[in-house]
Design a protein around this nucleic acid. Structure first.
Lengths: 216, 216
DNA sequence: TAGATTGTTAATCGATTAACAATC
DNA sequence: TAGATTGTTAATCGATTAACAATC
């Protein structure tokens, strides 16, 4: 479990397993084989078994996997068995939209505060979460045991803000700004580059249009 | 260019190339070698050359790549050389946040309309874009030549909505709902699963914490 | 026990990196 | 021309799939 490095490809698949297992629980399904799950998820059974066995043997020969148990184990692997305190830097439309999204809270990601540089937003609150000024950031992080900072600010300010957050002890940055952040090795970054995603969609769309032109 | 399939891994890297090239233009840099670009982007020069050569020979031996030319070619590949008409289904916080985001417009993605089922939103508008009811959807798609539909609705409604959109002729779905959509082969889907992204971050964070515990 | 299905090793496939001839 | 750097082939590396012995 600790000797071999888990590949990025596997890591990216973990939340999807967790989601499907959650849906199985909702449907009242108690056990599942890798084969049955592979049909539902449209991946190979082999891949499922390989992926899971990176973390341990959760199944039982001749039986399959106990859905609730596997769900809970996957949750532990993903760190959902404990609370993560978050802040959102940038209280514009996107920042407020994320603050309003209660599904994160259910998974243990608690949004403790919103921050902005715009003084007109000071004192306002979103779903009971106060918008504060950047000056209060350092104290707030330390006093509230904040682990994760969400960056929903313009790209030209994201680099400096990331440096500041690292200095204040933040260990994880969920980055919505359209730049690649440079942070020390012990700080993790997960990017959500919406423009990139939209361009990828556009690329795929263009491919199909070219194909269709050929057929005509 | 049309015989070999482009791998998913390459496709996902294209927007990043485009972004870096745009930044080079802003900095006034006119030519760049794969080697210099590889240093900036922290990937291998070999990968850059391989990736680009999937689409054609954009460089020149002994010279490198002309930044403006390559940027423009990458834009064409990504379909940014023409306008894409979009709608947003689900005018809650996230839908409105996306509607307010002007960077998409600059890349040719024009948000033509917002939709919702909540009658209290009817007639409201975001950045001059009207919120309409689902009943108007079919006509609107056809009359406004809509290609892309953005789904920012709850997951339990996303499947049915995707079916409806396909029926109305939508060819691309940008899916923010936390489900995997089943669509015909000629419809492309790009998922933005925010919860998955956050869980991935949480996983990476947990890994580091376990490492640090070991050192103590 | 017999049947089912895992965990795991081996084989295959694909993606990345290295090397170098082509060429500007 | 000499130097630089691409485009492209070959080598390596890693990820996925297949196969099957272990075992419930």
């Amino acid at each position: 479990m600790d000797s071999k490095e888990i590949s990025q490809a596997v890591i990216k698949r973990l939340p999807r397993y967790h989601r499907y297992l959650g849906e199985l629980i909702e449907k009242g399904i108690e056990r599942i084989s890798s084969n049955e799950l592979s049909t539902r998820m449209r991946v190979t059974a082999s891949q499922i078994r390989q992926d899971l066995n990176n973390f341990g043997g959760f199944g039982q020969q001749g039986y399959g996997y106990n859905v609730k148990f596997l769900y809970s184990e996957m949750g532990k692997i993903l760190g959902l068995d404990r609370q993560h305190n978050m802040i959102i830097i940038g209280s514009g439309n996107l920042g407020q939209a994320l603050a309003n999204y209660v599904a994160f809270e259910k998974k243990g990601f608690i949004i403790k505060g919103l921050f902005d540089i715009n003084p007109r937003l000071e004192g306002l609150s979103v779903r009971g979460i106060q918008i504060m000024m950047i000056e209060e950031l350092e104290d707030f992080i330390k006093e509230n045991n904040i682990e994760i900072a969400t960056l929903t600010i313009p790209k030209d300010k994201a680099g400096d803000m990331a440096d500041m957050l690292v200095k204040y002890g933040i260990k994880a940055i969920w980055n919505f700004a359209h730049v690649d952040l440079q942070v020390p090795d012990d700080v993790v970054v997960e990017n959500v580059h919406l423009s990139d995603s939209l361009m990828t969609l556009s690329y795929k769309l263009s491919c199909y249009e070219i194909e269709n032109q050929k057929k005509m």
